[in-house]
Nucleic acid binder design. Structure first.
Length: 626
RNA sequence: CGGAGUGUAGCUCAGCUUGGUAGAGCACUACGUUCGGGACGUAGGGGCCGGAGGUUCAAAUCCUCUCACUCCGACCA
């Protein structure tokens, strides 16, 4: 597969390249009309102007007419999310196939900015950079059992010798292998390695452009420690490091407690950039510091259970199958009912009891002993067989299944539930009296809701949407143990180190930044991340000698002062240039036009402001620095 | 993987119901007029109507099968 992949790829590249070039040969040093033009992949706006190209320039790549920045006037049909739309429209990326994107010059410059900040802060935190291969041998994954455990998301391939490989979706195996080969002494610990590398995950559903792509760039770091205390120190350091990185990017973000997947352990935080289009719901307290992913979020324990008041009685409920039906049929609040869900378990089905108005949190449920992960609801047949009725009439009374009860359901008195008999419910049911309740089986199962009391009692819970751009968590010995990574401790004994793992989505960050920094006209790059600092929009550059001279001089002057400058030297009309400038969204725009130039001025405008300011040509640099 | 939808020019889309020589706008090329917020005229170039099979005198259009892409749900940076 690997082999055929190589072959077909190079073949197609060759053919498309030769087709392109043979159709329209490039003009080497030729000037004038007779010269051919590699027009197809230069800009649509890029009119070939012999007079311009006759002028040698110091820094060709900064000239917009020579850079591939294919802006789009119309919204691409396939992009619904704002960042995706703007990235296509501003010419940052182009899609190759589902979940695969080519980064064009402008987008790549932003990636480099993001990477630079990430690198600087990681180095400050004492993390050392390495670079591991994208292609990884199956043997390593077999050692940890993930070769079998990972599904189709792991892209597998074979080399010419028919040996198994995969495209790395993550690098725990590789780094642990490196560690066990190279590090033998406790004295080397703690160590922390990072890389910025392409990952491939064959996502079931890539979406939102580069936000959830199959191939993407991630910064991943892995640390090794002798003991928990040492790990905790590094974990805090990484938490602070991530906070510094996102703060430097001017992002509005939240660190939240997170579920650590199948790894377990309490040390797990996600870093979310707040955005309406975010895929995750994050929960935070209106007062105090509590913040968590919805999957993980808890509410304060319910108040104590009231005394029983009613007698337990069966009631006929023909055709009533849902909690809504039940509440309206009996004219009661859904809060006074209890629902019993049956899920697949290791030794027969398991019952989960929740208050009628609550939603099951599947992440919490699948962690329970005896419950199969990923969570699967029992089929109607299984329920019929084990409970004896249809799903609409199940209840905890006389239920012969392992039963977990959510603490909110456990706090009810005189509640209504199914009678485990079709079309019959029980009213006035009370725990202990009518149903046994073992404290060990009273657990947190519900999905929290806005307005719930915060678990630490500080205010109530609020929801926001977030884009997960970072995740730090404890790996314990999940990889070091099966892979036999050990060091000798001071007493000469073998010791298996604890590991930590710290991920940050580089390409996803680019999308998240745009989600938070745009307006109706386009992107508004924050200074630390902008592909260029300054956009010089030269009106009539080709035809007006004074404009060309002023713009070129300004370009050189600002470059010399350390600004990165994009000079719009295209032969487009002013309206087109302004619209593109807004779309691309560089923070500073300088318009050089004949009108103001007569007075020796140019116009300056911040991307986030709506008014132009007239500035003498000589003062531009000072104006930018202020 | 289930559900929904879309594939026609580089882009946005019409044409399909009711088969009869493939269209518009933008973009591109040339020339001219324009030139401070997405100009205009004239003349051009560009399409295996996603692919395969079928029905038919005739298929972008009808049928079958496929492939790709997008959106909604379970996974994750």
């Amino acid at each position: 597969m690997l082999q055929s992949l190589h072959r077909s790829e190079s073949a197609s590249q060759r053919s498309s390249v030769s087709r392109r070039w043979s159709a329209k040969p490039p003009p080497p040093e030729a000037h004038g009309k007779a010269a051919g033009k590699p027009a197809a992949f230069f800009l649509r706006e890029n009119r070939y102007n012999p007079r311009i190209s006759a002028h040698p320039r110091s820094n060709e790549t900064m000239h917009q007419s020579k850079l591939l920045i294919p802006t789009l006037k119309e919204n691409p049909a396939d992009a619904d999310v704002i960042s995706h739309r703007l990235m296509l429209r501003a010419g940052l990326i182009r899609q190759l196939a589902s979940g695969l994107y080519t980064w064009l010059p402008l987008g790549l410059r932003v990636i480099r900015k993001v990477e630079a900040i990430v690198r600087e802060e990681l180095e400050k935190s004492g993390v050392q950079e390495v670079l591991m291969p994208v292609v990884q041998p199956a043997e390593l994954w077999e050692e940890t059992g993930r070769w079998a455990k990972m599904g189709a998301e792991l892209c597998r391939l074979k080399d010419r010798h028919d040996r198994d490989f995969c495209l790395g979706p993550t690098h725990e195996e590789v780094i642990t292998d490196l560690f066990r080969r190279e590090i033998q002494s406790y004295r080397a610990l703690p160590v922390n390695f990072y890389q910025i590398q392409t990952k491939f995950r064959d996502e079931v559903r890539p979406r939102f452009g580069v936000m959830r792509a199959r191939e993407f760039t991630m910064k991943d770091a892995y640390s090794f420690h002798l003991d928990q205390e040492c790990f905790d120190t590094t974990y805090r350091e990484m938490y602070d490091c991530y906070t510094r990185i996102l703060t430097r990017m001017d992002l509005d973000f939240r660190a939240v407690q997170a579920d650590s997947g199948n790894i377990g352990g309490d040390n797990s935080h996600e870093f979310h950039v707040l955005a309406r289009s975010g895929e995750d719901t994050i929960v935070f307290a209106s007062a105090g510091d509590y913040a968590a992913n919805l999957e993980k979020a808890k509410a304060a324990a319910p108040s104590a259970r009231p005394e029983a008041g009613e007698d337990c009685k069966p009631v006929a409920t023909p055709g009533v199958h849902t909690i809504d039906d039940l509440a309206s049929f009996l004219k009661i609040d859904a809060k006074q009912t209890v629902k019993t869900l049956v899920v697949a378990g290791e030794e027969g089905p398991v019952a989960l009891v929740l208050r009628g108005d609550d939603e099951l949190n599947p992440i919490k449920a699948e962690k329970l002993a005896g419950v199969i992960a990923p969570l699967r609801m029992a089929t109607d047949e299984e329920i019929k067989q084990h409970v004896g009725c249809a799903p609409g009439s199940i209840g905890p009374c006389n239920l012969e299944l392992t039963t977990y009860v959510d603490s909110y359901a456990a706090a009810l008195a005189d509640f209504v539930c199914g009678a485990n008999e079709d079309d019959v419910h029980l009213t006035g049911v009370n725990w202990e009296r009518d149903v046994a309740l073992d404290d060990a089986f009273v657990v947190d199962l519900r999905t929290v809701r806005e307005g719930d009391p915060a678990p630490d009692g500080q205010g109530e819970l609020k929801f926001l949407r977030g884009i997960e751009v970072g995740h730090i968590f404890q790996l314990d010995r999940v990889y070091s143990e099966p892979m036999n990574a050990t060091v000798l401790d001071p007493d000469g004994k073998s010791l298996i180190p604890i590991m930590g793992c710290y991920g940050m989505g580089i390409t996803r960050l680019v999308a998240a930044i745009i989600e938070q920094n745009h307006d109706d006209d386009g992107i508004c790059w924050p200074e630390p991340l902008t592909p260029f600092d300054v956009h010089i929009v030269a009106l009539n550059y080709a035809k007006s000698e004074p404009v060309r001279e002023a713009a070129d001089r300004l370009h050189e002057e600002l470059s010399a002062k350390g600004f990165s400058v994009l000079l719009d030297d295209r032969g487009e009309r002013p309206g087109v240039k302004f619209a593109d400038a807004d779309l691309i969204g560089l923070p500073h725009r300088i318009t050089v036009g004949g009108r103001a130039l007569k007075e020796g001025n140019v116009e300056y405008r911040r991307r986030t402001e709506s008014d132009n300011r007239s500035v003498p040509l000589a003062d531009v640099a000072g104006c930018l620095q202020s």
